[in-house]
């Protein structure tokens, strides 16, 4: 089977259609710009703004914003604005890579489960259900403690624990795609199962996976922040969660050092909100049932 021109045209039309719908969705647009903003900060910020996490200075600990430190300093005398800019890199990186792992596992399990069906399906789904009910945060906390809290391990842990939703979603979507005529036709022409799965089912499942991915990223970033706050992150890497933990453990809250925890908290909220907005609006556009209303 070759990639036919009609297919391409169809995809192109769908894409154009999607863009038009997206432009009419203010929430999606806001989300998009928020993410672009943080991407730019994460990519360009560290180049333009000098920050060295080793610049400890006992003379400037928890100092209010000043000309020298626009957003004040933390409990080791370091510049908070710089930590925020560097932190955007860490938070985005953890969010994105954890999501990639999670979406990969989820899609694989969902696709195989839904497409192959039968006993394999019920075994996989039982396992998914079993995994789904495990209390997430405690599980993540235990795994983080088990593996040690390097950034890489946090990514792995988050990825390994957040795939169940994707798997369920992909499975149900696969089941419905499987019923369609063109799959039957492909079988009739003698195409292999793996081929059909990758070539026909996956592309049709993909849009939903995509909007789901964005929501998973939001959760991953939020969870990473919580994990760091609870002391299970990597304190050597300046993430937003680490800033918040510093603020909480150093008692900055009770002396009203707002600069220590308000900007970092807002950064988390706005970025997560950006991903949520975008994911939610994608969901609305791509999910035909939602759109028709």
């Amino acid at each position: 089977m070759t990639y036919r021109r009609e297919d391409f045209e169809l995809h192109k039309k769908n894409f154009k259609n999607f863009i038009t719908l997206f432009k009419g969705n203010p929430m999606g647009i806001i989300g998009f710009y928020i993410i672009v903003f943080f991407l730019v900060v994460a990519l360009v910020g560290p180049i333009l703004y000098h920050y060295n996490p080793q610049d400890f200075n006992s003379a400037h600990m928890i100092e209010a914003p000043s000309r020298q430190f626009v957003l004040g300093t933390d409990d080791m005398g370091r510049d908070i604005l710089g930590a925020l800019i560097y932190g955007s890199r860490v938070s985005l990186m953890i969010g994105v890579f954890a999501t990639l792992i999670s979406v990969f596992i989820g899609t694989l399990v969902g696709l195989v489960s839904g497409f192959i069906g039968g006993r394999l399906d019920s075994v996989l789904m039982r396992f998914t259900d079993g995994f789904m009910v495990l209390p997430k945060l405690p599980l993540i906390m235990i795994l983080a403690a088990l593996l040690g809290s390097s950034t890489r391990n946090i990514i792995i842990v988050l990825g390994l624990t957040s795939w169940t939703g994707t798997a369920r979603l992909v499975r149900s979507q696969t089941l419905s795609v499987k019923q369609r005529a063109f799959i039957e036709r492909a079988f009739a022409v003698g195409a292999g199962r793996v081929y059909i799965m990758l070539r026909h089912v996956l592309p049709n499942v993909f849009p939903l996976v995509f909007s789901n991915t964005i929501l998973v990223t939001a959760t991953a970033i939020l969870t990473e922040t919580t994990l760091s706050f609870l002391g299970l992150g990597n304190p050597m890497v300046p993430s937003w969660g680490q800033i918040l933990r510093g603020a909480f453990t150093s008692g900055a809250v009770s002396i009203g050092a707002w600069w220590y925890f308000i900007p970092a908290g807002l950064a988390v909220i706005v970025l997560v909100l950006g991903f949520t907005f975008l994911g939610y609006s994608f969901d609305e556009i791509l999910n035909p049932k939602l759109r028709s209303r």
Partner: peptide, 29 residues
Amino acid sequence: VMALGFALLVYAIPAFWLGIVLVLFFSVK
């Protein structure tokens, strides 16, 4: 849009952070 936005916003706030801010405002201040 506002109500939905609010719901999503609430979802995006880390619970521990909200707790800290509430303590700061209602208990400390």
